[in-house]
């Protein structure tokens, strides 16, 4: 059994969670070009290393962020989505 640490519910079996794929920038729906839409919809991070993803604890319908290593299958960190903007403002 693999354990994921939910920022809201604490450590739970990973079967209780659903992955929603890498975090990526939204496009401006009014002004985005076809190419920008295409990139937004279909081109996602596939790095061999640490990626940042949206996850959900399904029974409580709580969405949050996880940092995961795509080669070692380690979960590095999990935190609430509100921290995301803080991290992005810093970098």
């Amino acid at each position: 059994m693999k354990i994921m640490n939910c920022p809201l519910n604490g450590p739970r079996n990973i079967s209780e969670f659903t992955c929603f794929g890498p975090v990526h920038d939204a496009v401006d729906a009014q002004s985005a070009s076809d190419a920008a839409w295409c990139h937004y919809l279909f081109y996602q991070e596939n790095k061999a290393g640490i990626i940042r993803e949206w996850w959900r604890h399904t029974p409580s319908n709580y969405y949050f962020i996880a940092e995961r290593h795509t080669v070692t299958d380690e979960i590095i960190a999990t935190y609430s989505a509100s921290e995301l903007s803080r991290i992005e403002n810093k970098s």
């Binding site: 693999k2 079967s15 992955c19 061999a48």
Partner: peptide
């Protein structure tokens, strides 16, 4: 598998 990974590990799940 339910999430992306660049590994050929197997899981009990």
């Amino acid at each position: 598998d339910p999430y992306q990974l660049i590994s050929t590990r197997s899981t009990l799940d």
